[in-house]
Design a binder for these strands. Sequence first.
DNA 1: CGGCTGTACTG
DNA 2: CAGTAC
DNA 3: GCCG
Length: 634
Amino acid sequence: MKRSPGPGRPARASCKRTASDPLVVQKDGIFRDVHMVLIPGGGILEKQLQIWCRKVTALGGSCRTLSSGPTTADVIDVATHIAAATTARLEQRMEKVELVGRAARAVAVSFKWLEECLASAAQVPVDNFLLREVGWYEHDKEGPTGSEQPGTAGGACPAPLMEHVTAKAASPGYEPLPLPTSGLSLPLNNSLSLDDSTNCPALSHPSPSNDRVQREGTACGVRAGSDGSDDEAGPCVRDALQARGARGGSREERLQEWMRTEVALRRQGRPREEGAETQDGCEASQYPEVDDESTLEGAEGDIPLDLNEHITRHLRELKDIYEALGDEWRALTYRRAVGVLERLSFRIASAEQLAGVMGVGQQVRDKVKEILGTGRLAKLDSLQSDAKLRVLRLFSSVFGVGAKTALELYSRGHRSLADLRGDPSLSRQAQLGLRYYEEIGAKMSRDDVARIHALVQAQAESICPGVSCEVTGSYRRGRIMCGDVDFLVTHPDGKSHRGLLARLHQRLTAIGFLMADLRSFDDDDQGGGALCQTYLGMCRLPGTDDHRRIDIKVYSAAVYACALVHFTGNEVFNRKVRFFALQTGFKLSEYGLFPVTKIGKRKFVDKTSLPCATERDVFAHLGLEYLEPHERNW
DNA sequence: CGGCTGTACTG
DNA sequence: CAGTAC
DNA sequence: GCCG
């Protein structure tokens, strides 16, 4: 884990130590005379707001968050900058706090402005970061980017909040809540126009431009067009970009943008990277608090609040039911719908707002409508009260028992787990699944995982010096509780991993650590090119008599990076990345990233992977910004 | 109407 | 190959 | 169930 560098640590010039040291206040820092107000929400953690607050203060400004508690209006009166994640957040909050008309001198900016300032240790122009009222598009639109949006691009641009608010108040149809409808339909063309400025050649590596201002926007994966002010023209980028009808580019371009936006969503709060400099801890010195606190303890909290939990919980339940029934595609649909809805920036007020939202079709919309109207879902009620279904769900929660087997067991007359115990028709896996039922369902702390890691690593090392033994899965993604331990083992020399799993398995069993094998592996010495071996089993939780799920995979160093991406997951992330890869001419698996050539209807997959020595290479080849493991909790 | 990530073990 | 799991 |  990266920690803050010591005070004497050398840093890049723009990596001013003081920027991250709240104790030292620079009276004439870059935020001198800045009085900032931060609006919470939009997926930004409270913790992050506090971090920013400290930094602004340290750099000579003043800063308050508009979090819970009484808002002192005078704070607003003197504010020079009001920062929010999105225009929607800003409007929502300003409305609630009855600040209409008070923030006369303030400029409304995106948090990205703040990030840019901190990153470049200078107050960058606000022009490219202004949050503006949706209805403002009429005037300054156009100007086919011929103008390279210099500082004061549009005279009307630096929108004092006053005007902004006034315009809103004058609008008769204005609603307190963030007008998602208009947001989804109206500004699409503006916010989504994937015009010329979308410069992301598929395979080119993002040019490590040092021009911070020009870089703007890519932080959110979207380049606003000529009106370049902000990519949150509508209520929120993340809403708009999920709408279909993002015309203005080829299918491929839209896909690229779509994926980049998905990626950008998880990068909120993290600045865009710069070349290879992240190695020397510069990044850590800029954002030490994020590294130290958010990554782990706050990992679960990294998930933005689900404003529509009252809806998604019903749909999630449907997803579980269809999974248990073996209707995987319907289940997939619900999972996708939930994934989209839980990240909406607004609370759904009417199902119509979902028109055009990708992944939510008519039938799901109908269900949303029903939930909004009645608070219930008749279909779900009937499914849930179905006794048979409940048994099927119970059975398929046993490791090794899926939908088919569950049905089979039911038809044999079984109704409870106890009934299953004696059934000799159960596969060996399922019998073990039953024996360890509770323990498999239990989670463990990161400490537990760390203990297991230490134990396994020590054994592996003693068998095969120099071995690399990493825990992937949810642990690597920073989750607080883990359902299993997922090892990825390799040896840097590219060959010593061969036969290692057998020896490791033998050793770990001998010392009484591995307690049961849920799935074994090819034990032949694989003189061939065997790239991997996988073991699934149960292990003893050190110091206890409890058991937990453990997976050990041994992969050759040649494919390690892709394997690491694969096993770090999560599953949703894997699906999206692989789908994206496929659409853009690659096939991604744990064995590599293979170019795919389409000739007519036929696809030819290269036999040799693009070279991927690190996870970063995988992202780079795909033209995606790198995501830290904890940002892959999709 | 076909695809929806891509792969490996079990029986 | 079907079923299950990662 | 959704999408092209």
